[in-house]
Design a protein around this nucleic acid. Sequence first.
DNA 1: CATGAATGAGAGTTCATTCAT
DNA 2: GATGAATGAACTCTCATTCAT
Lengths: 206, 206, 206, 206
Amino acid sequence: MIRSQKKIEFSSKRELTKTNNRSLIIASGINVFVDKGVAEATVRDIIRATGLASGTFYNYFKSKEEVLVAIFDDFASEIGENIRSQKHNIPKDFEDFLRIKISTFLNYINNKPEIYLIMSNNHNLVTNFSIATPQIILEIDYLKEEVVEGINEGIFPKIDVDLFALVTRPVVDTIAQEMILQKKLSIEECTDRCVNFLLKGFLGSK
Amino acid sequence: MIRSQKKIEFSSKRELTKTNNRSLIIASGINVFVDKGVAEATVRDIIRATGLASGTFYNYFKSKEEVLVAIFDDFASEIGENIRSQKHNIPKDFEDFLRIKISTFLNYINNKPEIYLIMSNNHNLVTNFSIATPQIILEIDYLKEEVVEGINEGIFPKIDVDLFALVTRPVVDTIAQEMILQKKLSIEECTDRCVNFLLKGFLGSK
Amino acid sequence: MIRSQKKIEFSSKRELTKTNNRSLIIASGINVFVDKGVAEATVRDIIRATGLASGTFYNYFKSKEEVLVAIFDDFASEIGENIRSQKHNIPKDFEDFLRIKISTFLNYINNKPEIYLIMSNNHNLVTNFSIATPQIILEIDYLKEEVVEGINEGIFPKIDVDLFALVTRPVVDTIAQEMILQKKLSIEECTDRCVNFLLKGFLGSK
Amino acid sequence: MIRSQKKIEFSSKRELTKTNNRSLIIASGINVFVDKGVAEATVRDIIRATGLASGTFYNYFKSKEEVLVAIFDDFASEIGENIRSQKHNIPKDFEDFLRIKISTFLNYINNKPEIYLIMSNNHNLVTNFSIATPQIILEIDYLKEEVVEGINEGIFPKIDVDLFALVTRPVVDTIAQEMILQKKLSIEECTDRCVNFLLKGFLGSK
DNA sequence: CATGAATGAGAGTTCATTCAT
DNA sequence: GATGAATGAACTCTCATTCAT
């Protein structure tokens, strides 16, 4: 029977990846969200691809939105670790600061492009959920504070912090999309592009 | 009853009713698309808000996508007129060029913020429809050529045209969203912000 | 406009065939019933093909079934005339009787094969309507009486009248279908086949 | 309430319910197809009569056509068994051959008259599905070959095989309908009638 | 009479969710 | 916890029919 074959297939996969049903559903969710978009995706789509019974879904999640949140949460916690591990990497100056943050960001999304695609294709959803996305690293509150600190400490120049908070994300975002979809530019090249442009944008002459 | 009121209001002339119903559906479509997003919106959502019978929808449109196209079409033709009226407004230099384009763009979306919201929240869809969106004014092919021309004529400085094509839209877009949603900044202020930032970004020192 | 073109087309047709809207609807009904079958046909299908407005249909008919009845009625009256013109054609014997009836029948359906197709493809409907169909010429009451008369007058042999009433129609029907659909056999050949087979069936010694 | 009664009746074992629901739908399908004809029948008609929820239908069938196929399949497999059990019943002569085939056929349809009615009222459909109908026993390819064989072996007389193939089905069909609908004649009487008539039709001297 | 837009019932179908096993 | 059939709300869309013009 096809059904049981599927089950077996997934069981072995489970064995291999040492994962459980929750992870199975999340993995399937990522695929479905990338393929069909979050709005068009259905719980059935997700559960179908796992080989699990439909009822099983509700042992783990209440809705597809909860899966989405879980996907982002998982990703966010990974990011968190990564960021913390960058903490001792203290920037010398503003350029260095930008370079560290942006290259970290680009590394993330290069490793998990699917999740990044879900986020950029469903921008409204992501905002509605106000989830800690990787973009957050480049965004308002958190980053802004660091910049303000840097300015106060005299390490950074006195830039327009609000403009910085507003503009950095979309610029890096666009270039990141270019990187993932066109696959022409390396992480280093993208980082350079972003840093150069932003630096000039905020500072005037380099 | 609301129903009969409507009937009385519109039913004097057949043609009038027809035009009104079309407008009614389009208006309702705009509301629904803004509220729920295009993907989540249903034909029933749209027709429900009009007070018309469900079948009536299909006298005017085949699907919600056709409503979307109609919304964009209406908007696009307005934009067309506006652009043409700007043709004799020849820029003195690159700053002037940016200022004209960006202020035109911001004026559009300030007049029809709902449509702009639909478009930016459903960027995929919009690209799929390849509709002439207001963003087009700020985008790749068309604008790029103008810049190249300007450079060749010696009016504009030699900037990185590809970076320009890539980065201008998202920067202006983000600031425009800020303008519409927060309603703190005037069109002039936003224009200034965009122009200043981009100018420095592309040129280095102003 | 496509619409008015259609109208004009049909108006000219109307001029040509000296027909009116009722005939137009009936003609369209025949086409639709042949193409889609009576059950699948809709009033919209019928009216669409006429170029008339949907409301106009109801000035002439209450439903598609009424159109069907009209189609059969028209046909039946033609048949009636034809039969009357055959009245002086008095059969010499049973073979002659069969030959006259069957050739008459085959002539009808050869002239109006569409209507015959409607009838044989919708046998249940036709029976439900108990309309005077061309098959009636070959059927129970009317024909049976003639046979009984013939037997009483000593012109026809003493055959099983009930078997005759039951079997004649389907036999002729099947061969008629063969004639119309395959178009290999002439009316004369079909008549011969039917007459020979039936004659032997009713009369023949084993 | 009928609803809860049903639930109580069937819900003891899951498998049982499943089998019963399938049977329920098929049984309802038979009724509806007989009553309204296949073309006029709707999925909702079928499911309505079962007392099940509308969605439940689609757990078992994709469309009413699939129900029809299931009905015929069930019947066909019964027929298959029956035919096989007749295999050793080798006919002595042509009359015997006709008698065996026809009585087998009449026995089938006498047991499942509803299904026979569906088939004869929807002859188009049946042909389109190319389903093994009971009529097949009396029809062209299969039977024709047997007759040709019989002729070659010298057991059967040299009859017009094409006429045989064409005429046998409608004759038996008509008498069968008479049998089912009027319920006056026994299977034996009908068999006699058919055999006698056909035999004379094919063999009889004029 | 002709027109054709409006109507709303109803068909097909999908889906999230429940719950007995 | 896992299962998967049952449920019925809700959606897309079509159609017969009405009725103001």
